[in-house]
Amino acid sequence: MIEYTLYYATNRGHIGQDRWRPEGYGCGFSRDGHDNLRFGKVIVPVDEQELQRHLYKKMSTNPTRIGDGENLNRYLCKQAESARIYAIEDLTTISDKNIPEHKNASAEMFREVKQVMEQSHDVLIFIHGFNVSWASAVGMALATEMMLNRVPAKTAHPILMPQQKVRVVLFSWPSDGKVIPWRSYGNDRQEAQLSGEAVGRAMLKLRDFLIRLRLDAKKKEERLCYQSLHLLCHSMGNYVLQNTLGKMTGYITKGNLPRIFENVFMCAPDVDEDVLESGKPLSRLPEICHKVFVYCNRRDKALTISDITKANPDRLGHNGPAHPQNLHHKVNVIDCSDAVGRFKKQDFVEHNYFLWATAIEDIAQTLHDVSDDAEIRQRKRKADSLNIWQLL
């Protein structure tokens, strides 16, 4: 067995007597409040042979597509149930005095993550969707990291440097992790909305840390790593992002929001189809990043159910944006419908397709600065002068 480390932040309530060495995290908020955060790391045991089997499994429908991220996810979810968790002790819980910002648990984890980035690692923050337990969230985050870091299939960029890696940092909100028709979806949506406050606080803490880092670098007290931060939200995690942006906007009333990320990936987003348009909740998303990528799939049964049974408007992750011509120039749309239908016809739900070889490789190429219209991309432009692409 090999042990893998995953850094995390969560506003879930801990399980067990010791909040700094919890047995796990539950499906409710922290008892200190829905915007209270815990930071730490989780150590997951992984069988290397089992890992390699999933990473390099060939799809029977197309042998050139290599990697079974969904079954890797299932395996890692099981392994996460026996993982060791180490929360960083928060001094504000044991002192009635003001704690300096640089001594907060968040700053301590940011410093550890910075040390990882100094080893030529970009960092991708991952926010999961609904019906995801703590162990499932850990498994999905690790599966994402491992699929992004595997030696690419022959379709990938030929000049990628093997030492350039991506480390995933998990934010886990208290999704129910179970399917009880009607109630679970409604509970998760309410908790996702409230969790936006916690993520918003975390983003602003990260902004303050980066500002302080640059100031210290000018005084030669710190050195910059020159790596990039990215954000990937899956399913209802995009609704968390929507409420996060609202929280940040409430704090920053003048000027643009802070540019924190290089790329933001909205995978199977369970939000309204017009949410990125001017005046809508995510219209200011391009302010916090260089580019936005929306991955959608007309075959996504989970979002179809969200449309029909939950009385939601059409979802962005189903048919894509309602009015593509109204999108900011930073926004790119990748339609995965044909690729999903061709390579995974046996999958009924088709909601976690961002972990499939075709989609995850497209994300990896973006992380490695492969141009949007490069020939090696497994995509083609769907319409002239629009940033809308069809995954092949």
Results as ranks from 00 to 15, higher is better:
P162R: 11
I127K: 04
R183S: 15
I252Y: 11
L124Q: 01
V132S: 04
D216C: 08
S184N: 05
R183C: 05
I180N: 05
M248A: 02
K154C: 06
R212Y: 02
N187M: 11
E112G: 10
Q164M: 10
M161F: 07
K218V: 13
E112A: 15
A135V: 01
W173F: 12
S235M: 03
L210K: 15
I211P: 00
P152V: 13
G177C: 07
Q164L: 12
G129P: 05
W134Q: 02
E145K: 03
T244N: 04
I127V: 15
W134D: 03
V132D: 00
R183T: 13
M147N: 08
N149W: 07
L124M: 10
D216P: 01
Q163T: 14
A153Q: 11
Y239M: 12
L206A: 13
Q164T: 08
H230T: 00
M161N: 13
N238Q: 14
D188F: 10
G177V: 03
K205V: 00
L194S: 10
I125F: 15
L224D: 03
R201N: 11
P181Q: 04
G186F: 12
G246Q: 09
F126C: 07
N187F: 07
L148G: 06
Y226I: 00
V166Q: 03
R189S: 12
T144W: 02
A192N: 01
Q163L: 08
Q193Y: 10
P158N: 09
G237W: 01
I125W: 11
P181N: 06
P152C: 08
G129D: 02
L210C: 12
Q115D: 11
D176L: 14
G186R: 14
P162Y: 04
V116D: 03
M147T: 09
N149F: 09
